Simulated scan of single mutants.
Amino acid sequence: MRLNDPQVWTLLGIFAAVMLGGMTLMTTQLSRVIRVEVDRIDATLSARIDGLDTALSARIDGLDTALSTRIDGLDTALSTRIDGLDARLGRIESKVDDLDKELTNLVMRFWRSQ
């Protein structure tokens, strides 16, 4: 069976249409598969990042609590020491005032006696 020109061109056209249709179908399917895989990876990464964010937030909150507790303890200890120093300085000041009065009395006695 011999094919004439119009039949050859028709077969070439059908072959080209089938090839283009197949490539279009394969490209569409590949695009869908890639989109699904990217979405799956995105969901996995989002879940992991959320988990890390939760764990990191919990650790930071724990550190914040521990540091606040230590700072409050240091503040209390420092306040206690400062109060103790204030009391000691108050006693020293009163003793110095008493010594000053006694010295003033001694000087007044000494200078009056001459």
Score class of each variant (00 low, 15 high):
residue 66 A to D: 02
residue 21 G to K: 01
residue 70 R to W: 03
residue 100 D to W: 02
residue 78 L to K: 05
residue 47 A to H: 11
residue 79 S to C: 06
residue 43 A to F: 15
residue 64 D to W: 03
residue 2 R to C: 14
residue 45 L to W: 04
residue 52 L to M: 12
residue 101 K to D: 13
residue 70 R to I: 10
residue 10 T to Q: 13
residue 88 R to S: 12
residue 25 L to K: 09
residue 65 T to F: 14
residue 37 E to R: 04
residue 76 T to V: 13
residue 14 I to V: 12
residue 80 T to F: 15
residue 2 R to A: 15
residue 11 L to N: 02
residue 96 V to T: 02
residue 70 R to K: 10
residue 39 D to E: 05
residue 91 R to P: 03
residue 114 Q to P: 00
residue 106 L to N: 08
residue 95 K to I: 08
residue 102 E to D: 07
residue 62 G to M: 10
residue 19 M to Q: 09
residue 89 L to N: 15
residue 7 Q to E: 06
residue 108 M to I: 11
residue 19 M to L: 13
residue 78 L to V: 10
residue 10 T to S: 12
residue 34 I to K: 15
residue 97 D to G: 07
residue 58 A to M: 11
residue 64 D to H: 06
residue 66 A to Y: 02
residue 32 R to A: 15
residue 49 I to E: 02
residue 14 I to L: 14
residue 76 T to G: 14
residue 26 M to P: 03
residue 53 D to S: 12
residue 85 L to D: 12
residue 26 M to A: 15
residue 50 D to N: 05
residue 69 T to H: 04
residue 84 G to H: 14
residue 83 D to L: 11
residue 16 A to M: 05
residue 109 R to E: 05
residue 65 T to E: 04
residue 3 L to D: 01
residue 101 K to N: 11
residue 30 L to K: 14
residue 66 A to N: 00
residue 72 D to I: 05
residue 101 K to A: 13
residue 34 I to L: 13
residue 52 L to R: 01
residue 71 I to K: 13
residue 86 D to P: 06
residue 112 R to G: 03
residue 30 L to S: 14
residue 110 F to R: 12
residue 104 T to F: 03
residue 56 L to F: 11
residue 68 S to M: 09
residue 42 D to A: 06
residue 45 L to M: 06
residue 58 A to V: 10
residue 73 G to V: 03
residue 62 G to S: 11
residue 55 A to K: 09
residue 5 D to I: 14
residue 69 T to G: 09
residue 62 G to C: 07
residue 83 D to Y: 13
residue 46 S to I: 09
residue 106 L to V: 15
residue 58 A to Q: 13
residue 64 D to Y: 06
residue 25 L to D: 13
residue 71 I to L: 14
residue 45 L to V: 04
residue 83 D to I: 11
residue 86 D to S: 14
residue 40 R to H: 01
residue 48 R to P: 00
